[in-house]
Design a protein around this nucleic acid. Structure first.
Lengths: 118, 118, 118, 118
DNA sequence: GTGGTCTAGACCACC
DNA sequence: GTGGTCTAGACCACA
């Protein structure tokens, strides 16, 4: 797994898990990979994965059955959606609109730019 | 000057200077505040300002006349626009569109969300 | 480590690292000394070493794994060679040839002069 | 006049004067431009030119007639040649040969490289 | 006055 | 443990 530079690795792992939940790949009750499995598969220190799981548990997205593993929580989809949406609106959107203004771009330019860039 | 938490101060100072250039407040050849002036006016350590200026010089946005000061470079507007645009397209846009997709939102929802949030 | 006067220490440290790479002592993927180790071993402030490492990272010669350390980058040898060669050709060679001309010397005189001087 | 970055401006002005002497353009007894004339023509602070002239006077390359101007000294050609040669051999040559070694180049490669580069 | 470099020491997030 | 950032303060060469 490749990690983006600016964001903490444990949060990037978290994003990856949230994505699986939002896309419906991992449903409520799904047993997610153990810390050990995950740390091996993405080549990361187990401590880092542990941190991710604790963080997600705190947000009500996964929960732990001791000695068994971590599972997708009830209402994980809603909790994840809420969390992401709040972050997106409060943190990212203002920056996006300010940048659009500075660069003399409109919302309509966005999609075209995106397609050209990728 | 108030500083946001997530981004390094020296980069925030850089953004502030870029903004002045993009808005046309500081034209080519304009002598920007000396390191010491700037550090006093925004209450930041001179080393931090120095770091900003070095960074911007490396990007071709300002240049230095020895013993005299820093000046807005030729083609600073273009260089700044390029830099910001490149960052925005390569780094921010993919994230925005991916998030829109995950949250089941469209471009049209963006503006409305932004207005409600702010 | 002894430092020459004319060049900034952080650049001399950089030269030293480049030399290790060019001589093949440090191969791609090699973990170079941590900032703290290096600063202790050459008796220099960690900030100065940090400056060196940032500079070399920007040049694509080393890269950072977060919380782990700095490593010799892929294609570091090529990048280092390019950088040094470019500097040498564009900056040093014109000066050398101009000086030879002014001093009424030829390329053939060079080696002899060098041996006598050292 | 364009100034290279790494060398002090007053020394670059000095080099320019030495060049005129070594090329035979300015002979012994020649009255060189006054500090004021020089500072205007090359767009530099008079203090900087003053520093150059003091430096060259100290090296026995020019001398001052008070109230009249600066003149090329007796034996200026020899003094200049000595100074340049000493600097070149002791300071520049070792660096050149070390770099050649690191870059796996020979003296024979030099001229070709120089021609391609310029 | 200007920038440039370096030291010392602190604090932080992260692995 | 790792790097990253920032502050405080000093010294230097230079214009």
């Amino acid at each position: 797994m490749e990690f983006r530079e600016r964001q903490a690795i444990y949060l990037q792992i978290g994003d990856h898990i949230c994505e699986n939940i939002l896309r419906g790949t991992w449903k409520e009750g799904y047993r997610i990979p153990s810390i050990r499995e995950m740390s091996v598969s993405i080549e990361v220190n187990p401590n880092t994965v542990m941190r991710t799981y604790s963080y997600l548990q705190d947000k009500g997205i996964i929960f732990n059955k001791r000695g068994i593993g971590y599972f997708v929580a009830d209402r994980a989809y809603e909790n994840t959606l809420d969390l992401k949406k709040k972050n997106f609106i409060n943190r990212d959107l203002p920056y996006v609109f300010k940048t659009l203004d500075l660069l003399n771009l409109t919302l309509d330019d966005l999609e075209e730019l995106y397609r050209k860039g990728s």
